[in-house]
Structure formats: C-alpha cells, structure tokens
Amino acid sequence: MTERPPTDRATGLATPEHGTDQPRTERAEATLEAEVAGSPAIEEASLWSDAWRSLRRNPFFLVGALLLAVFLVMAAFPQLFTSVDPRSCDLARSAEGPSGSAWFGYDVQGCDYYANVVHGARVSVTIGFLAMLGTLALGIVIGSLAGYHGGWIDSVLARVTDIFYGLPLILGAFILLSVLPERGVLEVALALVVFGWMTSMRLVRSTVVSVKEADYVQAARALGAPTRRILVRHILPNAIAPVLVYSTIYIGTLIAAEATLTFLGIGLQLPEISWGLQINSAQTRLRDAAHLIFFPSIFLSLTVLSFILIGDALRDALDPKLR
C-alpha cells in the first residue's frame, strides 16, 4: 500500500516514513524532520565546508547569528546590558512610558522595564536549551529502540507517538503543568519534553532505519560485524545534520511555547522574571500602556527569530537537494 507522504509544518519538508497509517500532520510545533534524514551518509568533510561557505554568504544566517549572540550574552550576563536592579521598584512610577532615563519605561509595579526585559532573557534561553536536550534524549532513546528493533516494538511505539501527536504541545503541557504542585524552570521544561518528543523520535528512528538498510551496513553485517556496533558508528555522522537543523529551529519553538504557557498563567510564576510573565501582567493594559506588552514581545520574537533564521540557513546549507 502506498502512503500519503507526510509533510511537516515547518517548511513543507516531507517527514521520513515511519510505519504505516498514522495521522501525521502536527500542530503547534515549528518542527522539521529534515529530508536529509534519509540521504546517504553525510560524512564527507566537503559537505560541512561547503555548508560553511554558503552560510557565511547567507545574510539571513548572519542576522540570526548576530541576534543569537546578543541574546545568549544577555542571558548569561544581563549586567552587561543594564546596571539597574530589576527588582528595585517605585510604585509612584507605575506604568510610566519610555523616557530618556528609562528607555522602556516602568512596569505596573514601577520597576525599570528595560532592566526587567533584559533579565527575562535568561529563563527563556535556559528553558529552550533544557527542553531541547530533554527532547533529544527522549527522542534518541525511543527512536533508536523503534528503529533498531523494528517489528512489534516499532508498531507499538508508533502508536504511542500517534497518541502524543493527537495532543497539541501547548494544550498537553498546559494540562500537565496545571496539576503539578510546583511550576519552575524544570517543570516547564519537563512538560514541554513530555508533549514534544515525537518529531525527534521519528527523526532518529528514520536515520537508524536508513543506516540499518544502507548497503555498506548490510555488507559489513554479511562479513560478520555486529550490527549494533556498526549502527552506533554510522548513525552519528548520518544523524548529525538533520538533528542539528531540527534542534536549532525547535529551540525557537520551545521558547515561544514557554512564553505562551507562562502568559496563560500556567508556566513560570512570580517572582521569576520572564517575558511571558511580563506580557501576562500587562495584558489588560494594551489600551493605555502598550509598551508593557511591546518590549518583551519584541525581545521574545527576536530570540525565536534568531533560532529560526539559523535553522533555516543550516537546512539550506546542509541539504544538497535543496541547493
């Protein structure tokens, strides 16, 4: 039976095959199971040097890299951007607009907004990377299980994947977080991992399957080398390009998801300093203090944008088919 080739939402790339009969369009995830997953070994150094050459000339990549550098530094050393303490507030200045002395104005509590927005970078970036690592770890474990063993294990895991695909990332994480007693950085990251591991699983699974079926692996097996060892040796070089592309774009998605959850009142809690919280507490002031929504939104969107720009550029550079 021929199957409808699945397409992923991210960039209209086809997703790798994975068993049969699953619903396979997904929502709420700017993910991508890159086409590169199925392509032959990407071991040649020339691929990477070619990729690097095309990246260096890609203005989107340069903009993305610059933005990312700024936000990473901001997350690590907010003091470099502001010397004002984000928690020293003066209620008299509540919701004052931007001025020469306070570029972004003051929030409802009368705290310097620029300092607050700058300090908001840290949790966003932290959760993005944490959740990404968790997602990859889970994806690698489940994906290699399914791909390596095949058979009924693969089928069952495919069904489980379907079940999770049925629940949109935000909705699932929203419900899970609502029943957790504590909601800090770790919990939010965890919720995002629990409802977001499926695409990375399929990515890993399809790489394992394609490597397993590749001629050189079959040949090595015929010569008596243990499959497991060959696979371990060959999967990394094959998986690294698609995983890199996917992870980069997906971090952006995760950061946006965290902000959404927090904005909905179910993610991070005060006194954490985060863009989602800032937008949440300002949401009723759109009419009279739009700057309170505007500035954290800009920072948030630019952070997400930086990851997506880099991811897109990486994909174009690494996927010879699209070149």
Partner: peptide, 22 residues
C-alpha cells in the same frame, strides 16, 4: 513567513488587536 513563524501566536494576537482593533 519567517517573521510570522517567529512571533508567538499570543503576541501576534496582541499586535492584531492593537493595530486593527484599537
């Protein structure tokens, strides 16, 4: 499309409310 994908939906919602509504 890159910009649209980068702006979280709730932010886009506020932008739409602000620009087209208010």
């Amino acid at each position: 499309t890159t910009l649209i994908v980068s702006v979280p939906v709730f932010v886009l919602g506020f932008v739409a409310q602000y620009v087209f509504g208010l």
